[in-house]
Design a binder for these strands. Structure first.
Lengths: 316, 316
DNA sequence: GCTGAGTATGAAAATAATTTTCCTATTTAT
DNA sequence: ATAAATAGGAAAATTATTTTCATACTCAGC
């Protein structure tokens, strides 16, 4: 099931009566909703149009029309996926490897697709812009999410952005306190509720920094705190390990942000990027002249592979 | 291609200049259209809003909003099938965000699919088996690949596997030297040539450990050194940043390995996994009594708030 | 080459949809 | 019991869309 509908089902508990009426009506026949006006939906739910708008914003859409368009995409998309047999698959014990592989592939593919279709390009562009102009960037994230933060960190460093990723929650807060206007705080959390990360983002916001969140769709505290909330798709309930697919989706977004930044400031960033590759290559040849010490196999491989310096296309 | 877009292409001939302008603009990036207002589209085409409405009616839609919703649905289908085409897209400068997003999605989807189809299940099973039985696991990887190593590390720790991921290349070697039969060394490298990682794996092999490599397909030194070489898909040449898709693919494999391990030793691992979640949860509630210190106003107040930064610093 | 019917198009008015503001009722915490 | 916070609706404001209408253009017939 698509992330939007999933979020509607999942959060039943925490919503007010009005919100629940809307959620139920939408779940009842999402296909109809996309052809309705806001007034029609409001009437059917015995609710004011204002409530509908508010509800859409609560779900982090820009408004009702935006919601309709995204919902339409998701529904269409969902149908297709089911047909292809690639909706989310749960992963359970004692499965033969083949089944695990298929399920994992289905989940990761669906996760990337869903995430892409949920993207709000304007927000994404806004995020790219503030990141490009940032004097300093702080990256927050705990556990699984710290992987994402560190990945982004590595990328930003390569294009000379002044940034830090923290593994320590006290350091996060400390650094957040010292941010100022023109700085950016970027917080990653699967649940959107990780207290350490939430605290850090609040603190960063108070310091005057622009705040960006990256959470699973449907959340939540972190997203509503952020100036620019970004979302990855969330998985269905009962998924044992939702964070695997989520992390892939979040890296997908990091890649888009980074590529967007490079594309925006091509002239500034590309030379730095190329230079950083060259330097790493060069350093290796000086610092680790391993061939002498290593067995033949290793030596052969490296010689053939690396005409160094002038080469653009080498990566670690 | 979807019926709507197809129709737009087909009928080029029989349309008026105004209509053709619209058709071309829509074909150029349908994904953008669905997030536009009628005025915006009209302006971009140097055409009146009236013309847009008329055009939509000509295509037998109720009006522009109806057209948008239908188009959004169609694109969602279309994207998936483009991705099935599996061709990698290069990512270059100055592209509009929409294009970057589409290219990134295509690359990541293709990367996961290709990687999956390259998998050798027997080897994969062998890797899972030795990892499950390992007394101790070393994870090696530099730069981008260290992200993958750390991700695996985090997963293994949760199921109580005795393992370490190294950020420091000297420590890698040091640790590799102290491995013994029954231990496992797991080395990640995009190129398969990273000297630090190659050295570490050689050293581990000499110490008697079982060695596993995870590199891009087609390489190379690291793979030929390993007892069990695993591969992620490699991108076409000329790709500027092959390591993005590669890293996604490698994490995909890590997920499969991990899930395979859990599935194999379900009874041992699941309780540990559950316990580790519970403990993290519990710790949080004790250590960071969540909302008490942070007034909810933070949510509302912040948006309007730019100018004040004289906030007292709080928390831990 | 001019005229006039038919068509294409945009400007602007009219309408409709959406969002925001403001106010009240209700709940929650003290 | 009272104050503060919140949810929700009515109506105003805004914005988007559609319709109407006037104009300009095309081209057949004179």
């Amino acid at each position: 099931m698509s992330p939007i509908l999933h979020a509607l089902e999942q959060n039943q508990a925490k919503w007010s009566p009005t919100e629940r009426k809307l959620a139920e009506r939408i779940l009842a026949s999402p296909g109809e909703i996309v052809h309705m006006g806001i007034t029609e939906l409001a009437e059917q739910c015995r609710v004011s149009p204002a409530a509908v708008t508010r509800f859409c914003k609560l779900l982090h859409f820009r408004g009702f029309p935006d919601f309709k368009v995204k919902l339409a995409a998701e529904i269409a998309h969902g149908d297709a996926s089911v047909a292809e047999g690639s909706s989310y698959q749960d992963i359970v014990a004692g499965n033969p490897l083949q089944v695990i592989v298929e399920a994992m592939q289905a989940n990761h593919l669906a996760s990337i697709r869903d995430t892409t279709s949920l993207l709000d390009l304007e927000r994404l562009q806004a995020a790219i812009d503030v990141l490009c102009r940032a004097r300093r960037v702080d990256l927050y994230g705990m556990a699984t999410s710290s992987i994402v933060a560190q990945d982004f960190y590595q990328k930003l460093v390569r294009i000379g952005v002044n940034c830090t990723a923290f593994a320590d929650s006290h350091m996060q807060i400390t650094s957040a306190s010292s941010l100022a206007a023109g700085d950016v705080a970027f917080a990653v959390s699967y649940s959107g509720e990780t207290p350490e990360t939430v605290d850090a983002l609040i603190c960063a916001g108070r310091s005057g920094a622009t705040t960006i969140s990256l959470t699973s769709y449907g959340s939540s505290t972190l997203a509503s705190l952020a100036d620019i909330p970004l979302f990855s798709s969330s998985l269905e309930q009962g998924m044992r390990r939702g964070d695997m697919a989520s992390r892939i989706a979040q890296l997908h977004i990091v890649d888009i942000l980074f590529t967007g930044m490079v594309s925006t400031r091509f002239k500034d960033f590309i030379p730095k990027l190329e230079q950083s590759y060259r330097n790493v290559q060069q350093y290796r040849h000086k610092a680790a002249p391993p061939d002498a010490a290593l067995p033949l196999q290793a030596r052969k491989g490296r010689k053939a592979e690396t005409p160094f310096n002038e080469q653009k296309e080498d990566h670690t």
